[in-house]
């Protein structure tokens, strides 16, 4: 029984983002790359599934430039069994990413479950989970807070507006996209980190998937940093005076109340 977990390597949330010289990508100098936090929940969920279903093999898959191998090593150290690195250029869109993941998974073996995060915190597109599922003709449930697994189906809780929950029961195979809170991801132990270094990461080229770099649909023609705000108006006085002045400003100057 094969379980896949699709993951992305992204800049750490504390990273400062700068626009590169080409004006349409980010400057990666000084960026600390991490396994996307939402994908961490997906990795953890796949390992927990395997702990209850020892026959399962967990394959971590990531599409991106060579650096993503580090994110795959993290997943292996957490407990994934094998890994596939799809060589994809920087800034590939959701369409090509999803298509390459779907084809790599099809080549590697029929999935029982595919886990991933609800979105990657770099481009924030939140498209690959459902797009990949569509390429694979599989059902998918996203923003999942809870999953209960039985032999041929999964009961899922999906978070929607206002913290309300949609309840699903979906037959396997299916795609499950994790929301923060689905579980508490484990830290990899030192022995497991050492073992993960020796595990093979299978590299797949786009050509082997019958795809090319240009099979994208959407790209970015320019990137810019948000406009800086004007200086903050500090309100002085004792608390009562501050409160009074703040509310006056919100009402009379900013006109938001």
């Amino acid at each position: 029984m094969k379980v896949y977990v699709c993951l992305k390597q992204v800049p750490d949330t504390e990273s400062k983002i700068k626009v590169a010289a080409d004006g349409k990508s980010i400057d990666s100098t000084g960026i600390k790359w991490i396994l996307c936090p939402y994908d961490e929940f997906a990795v953890e969920e796949s390992i927990r599934f395997k702990e209850k279903n020892p026959g399962a093999t967990i394959c971590a898959v990531s599409a991106g430039p060579d650096r993503v191998v580090d994110a795959l090593r993290t997943a292996l150290a957490m407990g994934c069994d094998e890994a596939i690195h799809i060589a994809l250029p920087e800034n590939a869109d959701s369409y090509l990413t999803a298509k390459s993941l779907a084809r790599a998974i099809t080549k590697s073996g029929t999935p029982h479950l595919i886990f991933t995060g609800k979105q990657a915190i770099d481009d924030d597109a939140a498209q690959v989970h459902q797009a990949m599922a569509e390429f694979l003709s599989l059902p998918a449930v996203t923003v999942v807070l809870k999953a209960e697994y039985s032999a041929t189906s999964v009961k899922l809780d999906r978070e929607i507006e206002g913290g309300a929950i949609e309840k699903y029961e979906v037959a396997t195979p299916c795609v499950i996209a994790a929301q923060k809170g689905m579980n508490e991801p484990r830290y990899a132990s030192l022995p497991n980190i050492m073992k993960a270094k020796k595990k093979e990461i299978k590299k797949v080229t786009l050509a082997e998937l019958d795809l090319t770099d240009t099979d994208t649909k959407v790209s970015y023609s320019a990137m810019q940093l948000p406009a800086e705000r004007g200086a903050c108006k500090m309100i002085s006085g004792d608390v009562a005076a501050q409160a009074k002045e703040l509310v006056r400003l919100l009402h009379e100057e900013a006109k938001v109340i």
Binding site: A131, E134, T142, V218
Partner: peptide, 23 residues
């Protein structure tokens, strides 16, 4: 953008063989 459109529109994009800019 809503939790609903975030969920199903990526599938529509694939069905229409096109790309989408979300959010």
């Amino acid at each position: 953008v809503s939790t609903q459109t975030k969920d199903f529109l990526p599938r529509v994009a694939v069905k229409l063989d096109t790309g989408m800019a979300s959010d």
